[in-house]
Structures are given as C-alpha cells and as structure tokens.
Design a protein around this nucleic acid. Structure first.
Lengths: 183, 183
DNA sequence: TCTTTATTAGACGTTATCGTTTAATAAAGA
DNA sequence: TCTTTATTAAACGATAACGTCTAATAAAGA
C-alpha cells in the first residue's frame, strides 16, 4: 500500500502540461521526476515505458478535454448561448489547443495518432455545424460556416499566442464573427 | 581554399527544413552532419555555436521567406491577382507556416525572437489590409477583413496538416472566402 | 512480530549530444 | 616545391536521457 497517495495522476497531469508547452520533446522522465520531487523509478513503476505513458497522455486528453468542451456547450439552453459557451471554453482552455497543435506534429510519424486527430476534428466540426444549423443556417451553409469558424478560432489562438490576453477578447471575436456569421 | 564548395548554405537549408518539421529540438548537429555526409567539425567551422546558427536560421527565414512572399504578390497587376498570388504562395510555402509555428513556441523563452515575430505579423497584416483597401474596403473594414483572412489561413493550414492536399484547394478556399470577403 | 505488497531510492550501463582540440588534407599562391 | 589558408576527420570529456536492477522502506494483513 502506498506511503503517499499514488502520483500516477500527477505524472499524467505534468506530462499534459509539458506536452502542451513543448511537444513531445518536453516529455523527459528525469526532469519530470525532479519536478515531482521523486525518483524516476516511480515513473517506471506506474508506466511500462515512455511510449505507454504518451499513449495514456493522449487518452487523457481525449476524454478530459474534448468531451468536456462539447458537453459543457450542450448544457446551455439557446444556440446562441451554446456558441458563446463554446467560445469561452475554447479560449479558457488555452493548453487544449496547444496540445492538439503539438499532437498534429507528433502524428506525422504515427498513423494511429493521426486517426485519432482526424476523428476528433471531424467530431468537433460536426458539432459546430449543428450549432449553426440550430441558429438557422441551411445544412450546406452551416457546414461552411462551421468550417470557417473553426479555422478562424485556430488562427485567433495562434495570433494571440505569447501575448497578454485582453479581457475583451470575446468582444473582439464577436466583432470579427459578424463579418462571416449572423448570430 | 575549399576542397568542395563551402556548405555553409547547406547547413542553413537543412536547419530550416528540420526546424520546420520538428522545431528547435530538430536541430541536432551530429544528425545534421550525418545527413550532409560530413563531420560536425564542419559545422563548428562555419558557425561559432549552435546558438549563432539558430540566429542565422531565423535571419534566413526572415529575408528569404517573408520578403519573398510580399514581393511576389506585389508583382501581380490587379489587386485580385495579388490576393490570388498571396494564396498560392501561402499554400505552396508549406514549410513557411510550420517554421513560424515552431518559432512562436521557441519565442516563449526568448524575447528578441518574440519581437521579430510581432514585427512580421504586423507587417503581414498591414500588407493584407492594404490589399483589401485596394479592392474597395474602407480602412476600418479592410483591417478587420485582413485580420479574419489571416487567421483563416492559419487555421486552414492547420486543418489540412498531414493530409494529402487537394489540387483544388484554391477553389475550396475561394468558396469559403466568399462568406466573409467580396472580391 | 513477520510477511507481503506497493512504492521509491540509488547505482549502473548505454547511447546521444554538445563543444573542444589536435591532426590531417586539399587547393592556391609565392 | 614550400607555405599558407580553408576545411574536415578523429578522438576526447562532459552531461543528459533512457531504461534496468537491486535494495530499501512503509503500510497492511496474518
């Protein structure tokens, strides 16, 4: 039985943070051990190998982030609220977008990861399309709007990277949104 | 005098490629030497240190890419052609966007690099704004359109990442563009 | 108390990478 | 031909990172 409550989760959380910040090259077991103030033996007890660890990291990201974002948006009542929620969560969850950015780069040499990414991108686009259908766009137009919107958000994130984020980002985004979406 | 024509440029070119693919962690001197089929002494003869090399890499990127993109677009006659040119070059220059992507991550711990990025982003946005002014938008609207357009392009690049690029990407982009720009 | 189980520490061997140093080599000029 | 200059090779030491192994330890159960 454990001396201290097992840090399995601490490893994952730290891994998630590091991967979001530096990508795959940020996952360095001995450095992580230092931060967690323990020995790397702990790592190898919890995880069979670095590879397995990374797989778990990805799983963690899939369940905890993607599902969360979509589910939270579902909670809102009106479609307008859903979109607003969607925006808020997207920008609050800064690490989320960074994680998927690096994951895409990591996936270049890993077909399975690529499949995961494709699925998630598709799911999120479908979700966004549905939002736009709900606020009155035709299926066809909704799909295009969603496609633009999704790309816009990614670009927005990329442009404000490393900048102090204004508290009024939502206002700014909405102002720009009006140029391609009528909410 | 050299046995073979100096490979100073080969190092830079390879460095550019690697940085675009893997970021700063892709710059590994001994690996590069292997690819160039030479000894790393060659590297240390041409460049004082890895740091200096990376600085040069960034300079190379600034001059060869950014200027090129803008200048080439300038060559076109009409503003519509300029936009088309801009699109074509943006998508042909796949490594360019990857380079800046990784550079932004690298800049987190490097204020000077961040300054460079800011300047370039600004310059490119101004350039794009001007394009939109030329096709009839007011200064204010042109700035917003440029801002959206630029973000859209980044997002587009991100979404097609790791996918076989359709030959009809231009058609697709233009179709989506119509939803926020009247050209 | 003794044993079992879960967990961590410490030491080890290996490989990768950085940067240095000394020697070798090839071409050009005196 | 001899020397100088540019360039590369080979070997070295240092550090970082991976993964393994054995021993230590702490808590729970018999």
């Amino acid at each position: 039985m454990p001396k201290v409550i097992a840090q399995r989760n601490d490893w994952i959380k730290l891994g998630y943070k590091l991967f979001s910040e530096e990508g795959i090259s940020g996952i360095v077991i001995e450095k992580m051990a230092k931060k967690l103030e323990c020995n790397k033996s702990s790592f190898y007890w919890h995880f069979k190998s670095k590879k397995k660890f990374i797989s778990e990291l990805i799983s963690f990201w899939i369940t905890s982030e993607t599902d969360q974002i979509i589910q939270q948006a579902e909670k809102a009542k009106s479609s307008e609220e859903k979109i607003e929620q969607f925006l808020k969560i997207t920008f609050k969850n800064d690490p989320y977008l960074e994680f998927i950015f690096f994951l895409k780069r990591y996936a270049i040499k890993n077909k399975e990861v690529q499949a995961i990414i494709d699925e998630i991108d598709t799911r999120r686009l479908e979700f966004t399309t549905q939002l736009f259908e709900e606020i009155g766009y035709s299926k066809k137009d909704a799909a295009i709007k969603a496609s633009i919107f999704y790309k816009y958000l990614i670009g927005y994130h990329e442009m404000i990277k490393n900048k102090k984020q204004s508290k009024d980002y939502l206002i700014e985004v909405k102002k720009e949104l009006k140029h391609f979406i009528t909410i």
